[in-house]
Design a binder for these strands. Structure first.
Lengths: 218, 218
DNA sequence: ATCAGTTATCTAACTGGTTAGTTATTTTAT
DNA sequence: ATAAAATAACTAACCAGTTAGATAACTGAT
């Protein structure tokens, strides 16, 4: 059993909710590190400080555990995003902040990026098993719609923009850079995650989004 | 043994180059479909029509086989890209074609996208083992530099653009859309790969790149 | 040309370690 | 007491890699 897990267990009495949570934390780390197929149930059990059967007691199977991990990860992202108070900002400034903010989330939560990569290799088999995830309305998308609406109203944004395409592009410009940095670094022989290089990337992404939004002069 | 593989074997005598190639084809399919960890050596052997030890004879290990698969996939992409004759085009038109062309490659070679996703989950461990892949200069990057240079010279493009950032963005806008379509489809409850929707995406991506490149008026 | 010796190609069966999931049992809180 | 929480030991299937050997192709001497 991992030392941190032993410590966590000693500190408390039996508490099924806390046990569930500790298992989910360990599972998130393992699945994010190795992907669904690379992850090992025994490793998760050991890292969580529980016996393997505790996992089966709480989650039923490796697949269902992964579904729970994804649900928790999506919920965490959603919570982070609802912290945003940019819906009332100037549309262009708001969009720029949105790009920066989204990029920071990818940087600070690399697990989520990796879980998504693995999940898409499985054609979202587990996300589609979840009744919770599709229900989660996406506050970021709503923010985008609101900013777009006001930008168009004030005549500064072009009026033919699809919010879903824009959402995917805002995500893509930073997520792809981060998730594919290892192969890019191998090919371009350059580091992509230094603070300076990362800031350059975020500025690039924000410039790209903002210049796209602007109405052509004339 | 798979039927197609049996047919392929009957048609010819012993031919190590052809055998190697047939194994690589089967391995590419298996690794792309299931990722590195999900792929099974026995499945590849069966699909190729050879005994498992033939794979070990030619490639030594599952890892080295995967490296060979990646090298072959990168080479295929490189060959496709050198077909391009857009280096001499009008810079803006050339960039637009480049975005469209790149997107079509992702659509038509979904295996490559999936191999890259799996490989990046492994932090490019196999790509870094390859001596060939880093050596492959990227003609697409050269094309971008050439178009950028001329666009800046004629005063139509802004002059602060990093070619690598632009390359990654051109890739990202279509690759991320395609590789992450399964989770996006689950969340947005919409199909993303119909011909019409795909064309919308490509237009969106091209618009975004081109509007970014244009020098701000004034 | 043909045959012996040699090497490359390919096969069948096996091995040892791993892995998801199960069963039988004990411990703890109420 | 008893029900929930947790454990230890087990199982059956799987899987990467190996071993030992067979068959086909090549080489050079006759």
């Amino acid at each position: 059993m991992a030392k941190a897990a032993v410590r966590a267990k000693r500190s408390g009495k039996r508490d099924s909710a806390a046990s569930r949570e500790r298992i989910l934390e360990a599972a998130t780390r393992e699945f994010a590190e190795k992907g669904y197929d690379g992850a090992r149930v025994d490793e998760i059990a050991d890292a969580s400080g529980f016996n393997k059967n505790a996992l089966y007691h709480y989650f039923g199977s490796k697949e269902k555990l992964f579904v729970a991990v994804l649900e928790r990860a999506y919920a965490t992202i959603r919570d982070r995003q609802s912290d945003l108070s940019i819906r009332d900002m100037d549309p262009e400034e708001g969009m720029r902040r949105l790009v920066e903010f989204t990029a920071r989330v990818w940087v600070e939560m690399p697990e989520f990026n990796r879980l998504l990569a693995s999940e898409n290799l499985h054609e979202a088999r587990h996300v589609r098993q979840s009744t919770e995830i599709p229900k989660m309305y996406n506050p970021l998308l709503e923010t985008i719609r609101e900013l777009l609406k006001r930008g168009v109203e004030t005549g500064r944004f072009r009026d033919d923009i699809d919010a879903i395409d824009l959402y995917i592009s805002i995500s893509a410009l930073s997520a792809h850079y981060i998730s594919h940095r290892h192969t890019f670094e191998a090919i371009f022989q350059t580091k992509l995650l230094s603070p300076k290089r990362l800031q350059q990337r975020i500025d690039h992404a924000a410039d790209m989004i903002v210049s796209y939004l602007r109405k052509e002069p004339g």
